[in-house]
């Protein structure tokens, strides 16, 4: 892992922890972005952690870019020595795979896809070596995921699966981005899954949809009354496959304010995870199932 520092114009410093995605790079990036926040450097206006990188936005009239770069670089040792563990939460997110709405969208944008004859799921299953769409869907939801970035648009989580690299699912993005994606689509691009928090453009493959809102600017949704954005980096997610009847039931419960997502507080320790992935995931699931 080699850290790279660069300027984004005269108002940003971009720090890439590693070119490739790993939880080590994520933890180092998150630790360092926290260290920058704690250092309270004059002129810093935004700190944005991402999957394997982070960005600092600052006012160069307050602190000169060279000085800002020096102050940020100084904090790298803190990130290196930081413990790669956190107290976080695991959340069950219901997913209606192969739903009619994303399917309709899948078919509308076929000419922008690598495999115009198939569907996003049949294509993803095939290129990842699965015999059937069902087997691929099972691989998508059987092990939990880690929110490694929030962004793109308001409140959209990027998720990285908690499995060995040789078990990671990988798909390309659409050849050309779509102009439309249904709200709450569960998507996939590179090694990341995501949930489209709002309707709009998108380039990720579309696998299904969740009835659970994750962004509510009006803050009317029962579990979004404190803040309009549901996810934060470090959250752990377990997809739960549901059918149409369950989708409709949850959607109605969200509307009448009675829906409460299943959530449990858990500790995540990267070293323990790397030493025993299945065991760590089993413990996470135990905590979730007890909630």
């Amino acid at each position: 892992m080699k850290t790279r520092y660069t300027f984004g114009g005269d108002e940003h410093i971009y720090v890439e922890m590693d070119e490739e995605m790993s939880l080590d790079a994520f933890f180092k990036s998150l630790s360092m972005s926290n260290a920058v926040r704690e250092a309270d450097i004059p002129g810093v206006t935004e700190i944005c952690p991402a999957n394997a990188s982070f960005q600092v936005k600052f006012d160069p009239d307050v602190t000169h870019p060279d000085e800002m770069l020096r102050r940020v670089q100084e904090l790298e040792h803190k990130a290196e020595s930081a413990e790669k563990r956190m107290t976080t939460r695991i959340i069950e997110i219901p997913v209606y795979y192969q739903d009619p709405w994303t399917h309709d969208c899948v078919m509308r944008f076929r000419e922008r896809h690598q495999d115009p004859e198939g569907t996003d799921l049949s294509y993803a299953a095939r290129i990842n070596g699965y015999d059937s769409v069902e087997a691929f869907i099972e691989a998508h939801h059987s092990q939990p995921w880690f929110v490694s970035m929030v962004g793109f648009v308001a409140g959209l989580p990027f998720l990285y699966q908690l499995v060995d690299r040789d078990k990671q699912l990988e798909v390309p993005k659409y050849l050309s981005p779509r102009t439309d994606t249904p709200k709450h689509t569960v998507g996939y691009g590179g090694c990341f899954s995501c949930i489209y928090s709002v309707r709009g453009a998108g380039g990720y493959q579309m696998f299904g949809i969740t009835p659970m809102p994750i962004y509510d600017p009006e803050q009317k949704t029962s579990y979004l009354k404190d803040f309009m954005v549901f996810f934060r980096p470090g959250d752990i997610v377990k997809w739960k496959p549901i059918d149409r009847a369950e989708y409709d039931r949850i959607e109605a419960a969200v509307a009448d304010g009675s829906y409460a997502p299943r959530i449990a507080e858990v500790d995540f320790d990267l070293e323990a995870f790397n030493a025993d992935m299945e065991g760590t995931n089993a413990k996470l699931m135990e905590a979730l199932n007890a909630a």
């Binding site: 984004g8 114009g9 108002e11 940003h12 971009y14 890439e16 590693d18 070119e19 490739e20 995605m21 944005c48 991402a50 999957n51 394997a52 990188s53 982070f54 960005q55 936005k57 970035m149 962004g151 793109f152 990027f158 691009g189 590179g190 990341f192």
Partner: peptide, 8 residues
């Protein structure tokens, strides 16, 4: 690997 974008 998806990262942050700078304004501009």
């Amino acid at each position: 690997v998806d990262g942050c974008y700078s304004y501009g």
